[in-house]
């Protein structure tokens, strides 16, 4: 996973609530067995017409937003399906940071696992950042994870919260599996607790 430290980039405004992961990447594109290559179909239904031509009114088809690395939306971003293909599609498109007043839990979690920083900010502030984003290519936002601040084009800093553990993982570009495996002894000891004796095992020979 790529580290996330500081990002200065174009932000795309999408003033919509409840953007679900089916919109971010429709199910028919989930047949891949890889993580990469989904970017061209991110937001497919809104981005392309039936013949595959770009719809000019969709924000990510417009300059400069086709180069956006930050996405700003309204409440409950990423609701619905748990598909990690949604953050994979965003990442493959080039998005490294998503900002919204609230997120669906699984999507929020999936973002961190892929080096995308999700930031919760009140809707009024999201509106201000969207106004900044609408100013175009020279109106970039800087997201500084080390200092936990977003710097607006006018220089104003907007602080944000992030879970310390997740911040550490992003700053260092770490994946959690290796970290958890360091607790192997505790996991093994848990598995041998007498109170767990009732949990049956599923053996291969018994599944038909």
């Amino acid at each position: 996973m790529d580290k996330f430290t500081e990002l200065t980039a174009i932000a795309a405004p999408m003033p919509t609530e409840n953007i679900d992961t089916d919109q971010i990447i429709p199910a028919r594109f989930l047949k891949t067995i890889q993580r990469t290559g989904l970017g061209k179909n991110a937001f497919a239904a809104q981005r392309y017409d039936a013949d595959g031509n770009e719809k000019p009114d969709f924000v990510l088809n417009q300059e400069p937003y086709r180069h956006a690395e930050i996405l700003i939306t309204y409440d409950n971003l990423g609701c619905g399906s748990s598909r990690e293909h949604a953050p994979w599609a965003l990442l493959d498109f080039g998005i490294r940071c998503v900002i919204a007043p609230s997120f669906a839990d699984i999507f929020f979690n999936n973002c961190f696992k892929n080096g995308i920083l999700p930031i919760r900010l009140p809707r009024e502030i999201c509106d201000e950042l969207m106004d900044d984003a609408r100013q175009g290519a020279n109106s970039r936002l800087t997201v500084d994870l080390e200092r936990q601040v977003i710097v607006r084009p006018n220089g104003e800093g907007i602080p944000f919260d992030v879970d310390p553990f997740r911040r550490h993982m992003l700053l260092e570009g770490l994946d959690d599996i290796g970290q958890t495996m360091a607790h192997d002894a505790e996991i093994t000891s848990f598995e041998h607790r007498p109170s767990r004796a009732w949990v049956p095992s599923i053996t291969i020979g018994t599944v038909k």
Binding site: S82, E84, I106, K113, D176
Partner: peptide
């Protein structure tokens, strides 16, 4: 509860 693919691997 549902999880993403990175968590499936975890």
């Amino acid at each position: 509860f549902g999880i993403g693919t990175s968590e499936v691997e975890h």
